[in-house]
């Protein structure tokens, strides 16, 4: 268990370093590191500090968020098919961003798009909570999440459908594919407070998720407050996924696949899976973001496309293993 965590942490560090050192500017390792740490004038410190550092940081933050919230939702719903998008936050954040692009609000000031996406995420989560009602049932949460996802998805399509401006439509489609290219430290700072809050919230649910292994009734009798747990999971997921979608667009499959892969390695305990999945998500997104820079450097391959391309076959492999009874 702790060996798994240590191995994942090492992988995060190695890939983080790789993410800082790999790029089209083709800098040497020594000069890159000294430019990053010492700063100074010229293009080199700017490339390191303004382009590569935020990109690597966002990969870690968003990957960890997706892995953590995916593991939390799977544990809460006791369903290995659950993923962070399930509660409708990512699609409502996307709708906010899309509306801001379409209306031109995104061009008004630098952070207009992420702010619009965060507002979308907030409205989405409020709607989900209102629809799910009071009480602690997980089924109503799933249904509310599906309803909000469908609504936000339909409205996004409507915006595309009615878009009179092909450039805006193009921008919207590309934005929705998810990417970490050309993000700045400002994006890091706008996402970090929400994500930190979400990590703190989701970090508290490990034990309750363990108790839920025995079912909702047994968990309630062991002192788990199901309404409180549901609220913490929804708010925590909304914070991390809303902020992630706001700065990077929709990145799928990480929150679904990473908990799946790591579950057998932590003895399937849903509480232990939380932090392992956070690290695993960071590993997967760092690796994917390095890959989009190396596979087709001149074509701007989108991160969300790559995670889905890698994630879907991985998922099929897992289903195959599940069918054979190896899992």
């Amino acid at each position: 268990m702790s060996r798994v965590i240590a191995a994942l942490a090492l992988a995060v560090l190695a890939l983080f370093a790789g993410s800082l050192l790999i790029g089209p500017a083709g800098l040497g390792i020594g000069e890159s590191v000294s430019a990053l740490i010492l700063g100074g004038d010229g293009p080199l410190p700017m490339v390191m500090r303004q382009i590569r550092l935020p990109r690597a940081l966002l990969a870690v933050m968003i990957g960890a968020s997706l892995g953590l919230s995916g593991a939390a939702l799977q544990g809460y719903l006791r369903n290995p098919l659950a993923e962070p998008g399930l509660i409708g936050v990512s699609s409502s954040a996307a709708l906010g961003a899309v509306l801001s692009i379409q209306t031109g609000f995104a061009a008004v000031f630098a952070l207009a798009l992420p702010v619009a996406a965060l507002i979308g995420a907030l409205l989405g989560v409020l709607l989900v909570l209102a629809l799910a009602g009071r009480g602690g049932a997980s089924l109503t949460l799933i249904l509310a999440g599906i309803a909000v996802s469908a609504l936000a998805g339909a409205m996004t399509t409507l915006v595309l459908n009615l878009s009179p401006n092909p450039f805006a439509a193009n921008e919207i489609v590309f934005w929705m594919m998810g990417s970490l290219a050309d993000r700045s430290m400002t994006h890091v700072w706008i996402a970090l407070p929400f994500m930190a809050l979400g990590w703190l919230l989701l970090g508290t649910v490990g034990r309750s998720l363990g108790a839920l292994t025995l079912g909702e009734d047994a968990a309630a009798a062991m002192g788990v407050s199901l309404p409180r747990l549901r609220l913490v999971i929804v708010l925590g997921t909304a914070c991390v996924v809303g902020a992630g979608t706001a700065v990077a667009g929709a990145i799928g499959f990480v929150g679904l696949v990473v908990p799946h892969i790591l579950r057998p390695l932590v003895g399937a305990h849903p509480g232990r899976l939380l932090w392992a999945s956070a690290l695993g998500g960071a590993v997967m997104l760092l690796a994917a973001d390095i890959a989009v820079r190396m596979v087709l450097p001149e074509r701007d391959l989108k991160l969300g496309v790559l995670t889905a391309l890698v994630g879907a076959p991985l998922f099929l492999h897992l289903i195959y293993k599940l069918r054979k009874g190896d899992l």
């Binding site: 006791r78 108790a211 062991m222 305990h269 849903p270």
Partner: peptide, 20 residues
């Protein structure tokens, strides 16, 4: 409390389950 529905959601070991 041991409910009637014998739910074990995840493939944990017997020892882990009892520790819950």
């Amino acid at each position: 409390w041991m409910p009637q529905s014998r739910e074990i959601a995840w493939p944990v070991s017997v020892e882990t389950l009892v520790m819950l």
